[in-house]
Each structure stands twice: as C-alpha cells, then as structure tokens.
Design a protein around this nucleic acid. Sequence first.
DNA 1: ACAAAAATGTGATGCAGGACACATAAAAAA
DNA 2: TTTTTTATGTGTCCTGCATCACATTTTTGT
Lengths: 226, 226
Amino acid sequence: MLYEICEYCHFKSAAVETLDYDELKELEGNCFKTQFSKGDLIFKQDALSSNIIFIREGLVKIHIKGPEREQIIKINKGPTFLGIPTTFGDVINHYSATAITSVNVCFISTETFRRFIYSNGKFAYEILNDLCKCELHTYKYCVNHLQKQGPGRLAEALIYLANDIFDSNSFVIPMTRHELGDLACCSRESVSRLLNELKKDNIIHLDGKKITILNEKLLSQISKRG
Amino acid sequence: MLYEICEYCHFKSAAVETLDYDELKELEGNCFKTQFSKGDLIFKQDALSSNIIFIREGLVKIHIKGPEREQIIKINKGPTFLGIPTTFGDVINHYSATAITSVNVCFISTETFRRFIYSNGKFAYEILNDLCKCELHTYKYCVNHLQKQGPGRLAEALIYLANDIFDSNSFVIPMTRHELGDLACCSRESVSRLLNELKKDNIIHLDGKKITILNEKLLSQISKRG
DNA sequence: ACAAAAATGTGATGCAGGACACATAAAAAA
DNA sequence: TTTTTTATGTGTCCTGCATCACATTTTTGT
C-alpha cells in the first residue's frame, strides 16, 4: 500500500514534513511499522528504552507506577511522537505506554532520528517545539491535580478527553472507572460517586461508558474552582 | 572583566560548549548580562515571554499560581537555561521565575538562539537532551507528589534540596516555611509540625532555617513509602 | 532602638475522600 | 448456555491534613 511508504504517509508529523526526499528515503529504510491491540503494552517503565516511536493512529496512555497506584500522566493521540523524553533523557524508561485503542505505530531507529536532529535544523526545531509544549502541558496537569479536590480533578479529566482527545462533548470513555481514577487521581469509588453527582446535576449525561457533556460551562467552572 | 565575554565565560552550558568562535561572537553580541537580588521576579506567569534566559549563578524557583496556592515546580540552579519551554512552547509564560538567592543571568535573544538550533545540530541536540531530562524530572515530581502523603512529600523536598541543590546534607533552607509548603505541597502549619516530628525522631537536626539530615536512609524510606 | 510587619509554632475543629465491605452488573471464558 | 472473572455502585467508617485562632519570635523599615 502506498501509505506504507514514508513519502506518501498521511500521518506525517510537522517535524517529518521538513524532511527532503533523501531523508524520507533514509527514514523509510529505518522505520518499522506495526500494530498494537487495545490493552497491549508498547513499552515498559524500568526497561531499556530503545527506539523512537511514532503513533500514526490510535490512543496511547502514558502511565507511571507510583507508590500508591498507577498514575496516568497523559493520553497521546496519533499522529504524534511517543516517548521522546524517555528515549533521549535516560537509557531506562521512566514510564510505560499502553494502547487504549488499537494503535498503528512506526518504530524509528534512534540513530536515524539523532542524525536528522544533527543535520536538519528545521526538524530539530519542530521536535524541540513539541517537547516544550508537552512540558507546559505537564506543568499544568501537575498543578491542577495537586491543588484541586476530587470534583475539580474529575471535571478536568472529562474536559481533557472531550477537547484534546475526542474533539466532541459526546464520546465513549476509552477506559474503566478505575483507569479514570488513575487519570483524575482518585479512587474508583470516588469516580463512581462523582460521576453520579454530575449526572444528578444534569451537567453530564451518562450511560455506562457513553458520556455527553451537557453543561460545558458549569463543568469548566467546577474544574477551575477545584 | 574577561568572564563577561561569552568566549571566556566560566558558566557555559553543554550546549554553548558546542558553539564555534564565530557563533560565540554572535552570542556575545546578543547577550545581555544582569543581576537579580533575592526575591526579585525574573519573569511572570501570563506575561509575554521574551528572551531565553541563562542562569550563570544562583538559585531560581519556578512557580505556578494554582487555584489554591502558589506551587513551586522546581528550583533551577545555575549554570542552566531557564524557561526554554515557556519561551518556545507559547507566547505567554505559563509560570513565573523568582530569584531565591542573588542571581547572575544572561538574556539571550530568542532569534539568536533559534538560529543556533537551525544551524548547529550539536547545539540543538544538547538543548533537546536538557528538555528531555527536565521532562522526566517533572513526571517524577508529579507522581511523587500526587500519591504521597505529607511526610513523604516533605521528605522528598528535603532530599531534593540536599542532593540536587546543595550537594550536602547540611544546608540553610533558602526559603520560608510557607514556601517549603509550596514546594512540598502542604500548608505552612503542616511543614512546622512535620519538621518537628522529624527532629524529634532524630532524623534531622534543625535550628531555624539551618538543617542537617542525620539519618539519610530513614528519610529516604519515608519519602519512598509516602 | 523602636514600631510594624512578617514568619513561625501549636492546639482545636471539621471534612474530603480513601479504605473496607458487600451487592449487582457486565464481560470473558468455559 | 453456564460459570467465572472483572467492573461498577453504594453505604459506613476513619484518618490525614487544611483551616482557624492565637501566641510568640524574627525580620524589616524608620
């Protein structure tokens, strides 16, 4: 299939868009495409980090094993690079990545990637920019979660899913209540109670994992107030 | 003074070490040195981000205004770049930076910095590496703080100061109890109580802001357990 | 040196939310 | 299908820690 060739790939990142014909050919030769199913572990915390991974399509959760529970740091949605910090920042992965839908990825040789950074300033700049944005997102996530109470954290998680992942106020939560707790940083019981609370107040409509945000404004207020 | 000239500066970062003579000359022409006193605001959250800042000497706290309190994300110790993510990631600063000792900095034109990234792959690579390490640190900080209780968080903050900032088990805490609370994410009252607890158990010696970690192992255990 | 302001310590109180226990429902395996 | 496992809902209890209140100490400004 044509889209299997880097040059014609529909899922190019801004960085890869800066590559010229020869560089794309080189990428093609050092890029291995594969698929993961829902629930598959893509890479594991504390294991040796290996390749640069590019998510073409699908959702991947980034999670860290904490002293108490598993913590979901963020959800990556293709097309995007995955785990650049853990590949360049240390030889050992500082977090795990797990597919939460079926996921289409490319494994790119770290050496090739490094070569592009050395030789193509625009490429380096795009990657750098991504990292900066990512870092800012993490800071925000961090402060929000540290200072808000349960309702605020859950509201934020729901808004995050709606705005950043599904671009819609109506979606199917791609995880269990337990995982939602790992994302919003509260127990699964609290997630249940808080969701029912939101439902009772007509802020969301909820049926199992199917959710619709009815009162975006109010939900956003809950998130902001904490 | 010679050290005022980039070429002879003692405080070069790994990235700046990769610059050649001409590039150092260019840096020299686009680099403005200044000083901040303890307590001075270096840049402010929600203001337009302007220059790349390099800390030559001194301690700077990075903090974000949260819904409840001011949150100290980390402490930057020169020599290091400061606020690259907030300069490249967005036009508006996502956090503030305040001097907590007297601080010696260079303001570097963002344009010059960008030019180096475009034209010098090694420079770009070093910056990228820094960003990755920084991101990993943030993740760790985040999970630790989200899942630990007061004692664990405070223990972690003290170990952070001892290992990463002062390289010594005996140091003068460079901030108030209130700020220590902003770092460890608890109230100033809790900081008081927790410090006294640690003192009573002979894990630390404490006299005002002067602190000595007596039982590093135990403190680390408290931090790990939460 | 003095007054004013800021930082610190300590007790009492209240409550958010985690932990546990159990019932029920949904999904996966047989 | 039936059985087993996993996910979810809901009540009760209990604790960590924020908040308030106030005393005391330290720092800062004049």
